[in-house]
C-alpha cells in the first residue's frame, strides 16, 4: 500500500539533510511501528508524507497504492486516503469541530467523485463514532481542539480518522501526553479501525503503546534511515536495553 524508496529529504531553509535514503513498504492490512531516538527524522517522515511545507525531497519516491504522493497537495493526499494523526493537534478558535469535520468529510467525498453526506446522515454518523470514543456532543460543538485536554485532542484525532476512513494512517507520537486510561481509549479506537484494507504507521518513543496496538513489524530509525526491522520483540528489546546496542550493531 505505502511504498517509500530511498527517500532523501532536507530542510528547505537550511541546508540540513534529515532523511538519508529511507526505504519502507507497508502492505495492506498491516501495522508497522517506527521507533528511534530523538532527532532521527521520525516526525519529518510523517510531515513529508502528508505534504507539509518546508521540506525538499532531493531523491527517492513515496507512493500510496502506486500513486506518487510527493507531487500532490496535502488535501489531495488526504482524499487519496492518507491521514496523519498529529503529535500536537492544532487549536482553531472560532471554527466549530463539527463544521470542520463535515467540511473535511464532504471535501474528500467530492474529490473522489462520491456523493456528499447530508447534514442528517453526517450527524448520525458523527454522534455514533464520537460516543465510541467517549467524546461528548458538547465537545463536538466546541471550536476545533480549543480548551481540549491532551487526551481529548488525541481522541478528537481518532474521531477524525474514524470519520474520514483513510486507507493509510500515520500516527505521530499519539501516545505523548496520554494517561493510562486515555491511551486505552485511543488504542481501542485505533484497533476498531484495523481492517484488511487499511494500514497503519505508528511512530512512537515507547513500547507501551505497542502493547495496546500490536504491530506486525517494528522498524528502528536512526540518522534518517531504517537501520533494523523485526517483529514486536524488537520493541521489547528497545524498552529493555535502549537504542545503544542496536545502533552500534547497525553501524
Amino acid at each position: 500500500m505505502l511504498k517509500i524508496d530511498n527517500l532523501h529529504v532536507k530542510l528547505e531553509e537550511e541546508d540540513k539533510q534529515i532523511l538519508k535514503g529511507l526505504s519502507l513498504e507497508i502492505p495492506a492490512g498491516q501495522v508497522h511501528a517506527i521507533m528511534g531516538p530523538n532527532g532521527s527524522g521520525k516526525s519529518t517522515l510523517s510531515y513529508v508524507l502528508s505534504g507539509r511545507d518546508g521540506y525538499e525531497v532531493t531523491e527517492g519516491s513515496a507512493t500510496l497504492d502506486g500513486q506518487s504522493l510527493l507531487d500532490m497537495e496535502p488535501e489531495q493526499r488526504a482524499s487519496a486516503g492518507l491521514f496523519l494523526a498529529f503529535q500536537y493537534p492544532v487549536e482553531i478558535p472560532g471554527v466549530g469541530n463539527m463544521t470542520f469535520l463535515r467540511t473535511a468529510v464532504n471535501a474528500q467525498r467530492k474529490a473522489r467523485g462520491e456523493a456528499e453526506l447530508s447534514s442528517g446522515d453526517f450527524l448520525k454518523l458523527v454522534r455514533a463514532k464520537a460516543a465510541e470514543l467517549q467524546i461528548s456532543p458538547e465537545m463536538l460543538k466546541r471550536p476545533v481542539n480549543v480548551g481540549f485536554s491532551g487526551g481529548e485532542k488525541k481522541r478528537n484525532e481518532i474521531l477524525q480518522m474514524a470519520m474520514l476512513e483513510p486507507r493509510m494512517c500515520i500516527m505521530d507520537e499519539t501516545d505523548s501526553g496520554l494517561d493510562v486510561d486515555a491511551m486505552r481509549l485511543v488504542s481501542d479506537g485505533v484497533n476498531a479501525l484495523r481492517s484488511p484494507d487499511r494500514s497503519f504507521l505508528v511512530i512512537t518513543h515507547y513500547q507501551r503503546l505497542l502493547n495496546h496496538i500490536q504491530p506486525d513489524v517494528v522498524h528502528i530509525m536512526a540518522n534518517g534511515r531504517i537501520v533494523k526491522s523485526g517483529g514486536p520483540e524488537l520493541a521489547l528489546q528497545v524498552e529493555e536495553e535502549g537504542y545503544g546496542d542496536l545502533l552500534a550493531e547497525a553501524g
Binding site: 502528508s50 505534504g51 507539509r52 511545507d53 497537495e73 496535502p74 488535501e75 493526499r77 488526504a78 482524499s79 491521514f83 496523519l84 498529529f86 493537534p89 492544532v90 482553531i92 478558535p93 472560532g94 471554527v95 470542520f100 467540511t103 473535511a104 468529510v105 471535501a107 474528500q108 474529490a111 471550536p143 477524525q160 474520514l164
Partner: peptide, 28 residues
C-alpha cells in the same frame, strides 16, 4: 502555516481552509 496545514491534511481544500482561518481570526 501550521493551522493551514492541519486543515488541508484533513482534505479541506486550501481556499476553504483559508476561509476557516479568516473566520477564526474574526471570531472574537
Amino acid at each position: 502555516d501550521e493551522a493551514l496545514f492541519y486543515l488541508r491534511s484533513r482534505g479541506v481544500p486550501r481556499e476553504r481552509a483559508i476561509v476557516f482561518l479568516v473566520l477564526s481570526f474574526l471570531a472574537d
